[in-house]
């Protein structure tokens, strides 16, 4: 089935060294259109480093990160700055929430619109018709995104005053404001209670279905991953040890070993 779909992100043999430590070791991964792909693995497996390489925060030591936007030329992301990567259409959220605490919820989302709008300093000072129209559009589209993630009532609150689960959703809304075609979520359910996780699951499915945004997520909540993800990639000690659909992953002895430890004959 995957073969017919358009390939959006292609990572080939990605390696990241920090001095003598190989945090990510020739990982190959693909995300297709409409996918909700998941990257799982024990703590310290190199998942977040992998994300940071793709989004330009680190410059990978080896390997290729290729982005194939629909109807556009293929772009190699290696060494691009994070803001350029975001402009290409690849947005992310962070494992430890990184909102702008002293800005309102709406303003947080409006920041996401920054790279899709372009009024400069002089226009901002003159504040002509075009700028006012652009501002209005920024506000409207940001507000619509807030409605989508269910935070419209909090639009004018400071984001630091939001409850934890809402902050996670706000991060997703902010990332979506950059008009991505691929969304990278770094542990979106971390620290959430079961109810919030269920809501998040619905939200992710909704984004994937309604917005035509492919999703690649890192997650420790196995229930969530098994429910919504296909394909699943498993990493351990920087290496990819398995990939496949949820059933295949569940039955894969290497994955079981990575999570539960080696079986010993007693």
């Amino acid at each position: 089935m995957a073969e017919n779909k358009h390939k959006l992100l292609e990572v080939k043999g990605l390696t990241m060294d920090f001095g003598g430590l190989r945090a990510v070791d020739s990982v190959t991964l693909e995300v297709h259109e409409g996918d909700i792909a998941a990257l799982i693995g024990p703590n310290g497996a190199g998942k977040t480093t992998f994300f940071n390489c793709i989004t330009g925060i680190y410059d990978p030591t080896k390997g290729d990160i290729l982005l194939h936007p629909k109807g556009l030329k293929t772009r190699r992301l290696n060494g691009l700055k994070p803001n350029k990567v975001t402009e290409m259409g690849l947005a992310r959220t962070f494992q430890n929430i990184r909102l702008f605490p002293d800005m309102t919820v709406l303003e947080n989302v409006m920041i996401g619109r920054h790279c899709r709008t372009k009024s400069g300093i002089f226009r901002a000072v003159v504040r002509g018709k075009r700028v006012r129209e652009e501002e209005r559009q920024i506000v409207e589209s940001s507000y619509q995104l807030l409605e989508k993630v269910g935070l419209a009532d909090f639009a004018n609150e400071f984001s630091k005053n939001l409850p934890y689960g809402a902050q996670r959703r706000l991060e997703i809304a902010r990332a979506m404001a950059t008009d991505p075609f691929l969304l990278l979520l770094d542990e979106p359910a971390a620290g959430m209670n079961p109810q919030e996780t269920a809501d998040l699951e619905q939200l992710i499915c909704k984004i994937s279905a309604e917005e035509q945004i492919a999703i690649l997520l890192i997650e420790h909540d196995m229930k969530l991953v098994m429910n919504i993800s296909d394909p699943i990639y498993v990493m351990e000690y920087g290496k990819k040890i398995a990939e496949g659909n949820p059933q295949e992953i569940k039955d894969n002895p290497k994955v079981i070993e990575a999570y539960l430890g080696e079986e010993t004959d007693a």
């Binding site: 925060i57 994070p82 803001n83 947005a91 702008f100 002293d102 800005m103 996401g112 920054h114």
Partner: peptide, 14 residues
């Protein structure tokens, strides 16, 4: 203001 609040998040937002 976003840059003041969090530089990494800011650059990740494009």
């Amino acid at each position: 203001i976003a840059m003041r609040e969090d530089e990494i998040a800011c650059v990740a937002m494009g």
